[in-house]
């Protein structure tokens, strides 16, 4: 019975795949050329890299809602925390880190060398996003990677609580973005995230800086929250 059902799923997937392939090969060429529209307005966007122009200017509201999604995901993970009462209490301090085992010393040395370089590269990526590949997301991912490396090397404790500094840091970028959106929408003759002429480049850089810090904290938080539960579980069971 199980085998027959499995086979049915595979056959249905193959049929759907054939239909998708047929639809793609039969697709007429598009009459809307978004790339040309982006290129025509690129000078007014405040940046010279088209992907950044789309992300932070032409379709800035997509990015705004995406950051909200990330924040909601972090909140959702907090609600799944094992020790519900302890998590959100402001006074809770995590226990001090134990002395590292010998095999971690090499990793700690590596982390101490690499993490400053990663932070430097994140800063470069943030700045480079205005005119070439790079930007807030890649920079934030590097910062989060630095956080993961520090945690694995035993230099950064996992999040067993969600302290005020973390709350403030993970919401700052989003708040600034929302403020910019509200200000541009409220301005006379303004539309949502339509930056005033001449200010676009500066505003995009400020928004991206805030997003890098907050997204880096949120992405690192995804890992640090999950690794906290892992160590909690093994501690209580042993």
């Amino acid at each position: 019975m199980k085998g027959v059902l499995d086979l049915l799923v595979i056959v249905l997937c193959l049929v759907l795949g054939a239909a998708l392939w047929w639809a793609m090969l039969d697709l007429p060429s598009s009459r809307i050329h978004l790339a040309e529209q982006v290129a025509a307005k690129l000078d007014a966007s405040g940046v010279t890299h088209p992907v950044t122009a789309v992300l932070l200017n032409f379709r800035g509201y997509d990015t705004l809602i995406e950051v909200m999604v990330l924040f909601v995901a972090l909140i959702g993970m907090l609600t799944q925390a094992e020790k519900g009462s302890q998590w959100l209490s402001a006074g809770y301090r995590p226990p001090p880190l134990p002395a590292p085992p010998f095999h971690l010393e090499v990793l700690q040395w590596l982390a101490r060398v690499l993490v400053p370089l990663m932070i430097l590269t994140a800063g470069y990526l943030l700045w480079a996003g205005a005119h070439r590949a790079g930007g807030a997301f890649q920079a934030a991912a590097l910062l989060a990677g630095a956080g993961v490396l520090l945690n694995l090397a035993g230099l950064l404790p996992a999040w067993t609580t969600f302290r005020a500094g973390m709350r403030a840091g993970s919401i700052t970028g989003l708040l600034f973005f929302v403020l910019a959106a509200a200000a541009t929408a409220a301005a006379p003759h303004g539309h949502l995230l339509q930056y005033p002429a001449g200010w676009a480049g500066m505003l995009i850089l400020l928004i991206e800086t805030g997003l890098t810090l907050s997204l880096g904290l949120i992405l690192a938080g995804f890992f640090l929250l999950l690794s906290a539960e892992a160590s909690d579980g093994s501690d209580t069971e042993e």
Binding site: L125, A141, G145, F223
Partner: peptide, 24 residues
């Protein structure tokens, strides 16, 4: 842009999360 994000987030961070899940 996507290549950078995919290497850092898609392979790196998602991989770390999944490996952490296996360890747990």
């Amino acid at each position: 842009d996507i290549a950078l994000a995919e290497a850092a987030i898609g392979a790196g961070l998602t991989g770390a999360l999944l490996l952490n899940g296996v360890g747990h």
